[in-house]
């Protein structure tokens, strides 16, 4: 647990689990581009690469909601009152 003293501010680091959840969209819509950059099979009339990226617009919020859940739970376990928790 990091300590925030009253003189200098230090940012809290996110938990490994939350970072891992954020890496999923990066892996899916950035690093894996050679795997999905193709026209066929077309899905819902869209080339596969268009379909793939549009679906990740919907799936990314799910991943980040998971990361949010992890972060808020971690914060409440640590009994924090400051930023990052509702």
């Amino acid at each position: 647990m990091e300590h925030r003293d009253d003189r200098t501010f230090r940012a809290k680091r996110p938990s490994p689990g939350a970072i891992l959840l954020g890496l999923i969209p990066f892996a899916a819509s950035c690093f894996s581009v050679p795997l999905w950059d193709r026209v066929y099979p077309m899905v819902l009339g869209l080339p596969f690469n268009f379909f793939w990226l549009i679906s990740w617009l919907l799936l990314t919020p799910l991943c980040m909601w998971g990361a949010y859940w992890l972060e808020t739970h971690r914060a409440s376990e640590l009994g924090r009152k400051d930023g990052g928790t509702p």
């Binding site: 809290k12 996110p14 819509s29 950035c30 990226l53 990740w56 991943c63 980040m64 949010y68 930023g83």
Partner: peptide, 23 residues
């Protein structure tokens, strides 16, 4: 297509550091 890719991931990046920046 890079436009869809980066705008989406920019918000992922902001999820981690923007609240700390705000603090």
């Amino acid at each position: 297509l890079y436009i869809i890719g980066y705008t989406c991931l920019a918000y992922v990046v902001s999820f981690y550091f923007l609240p700390e920046l705000w603090e």
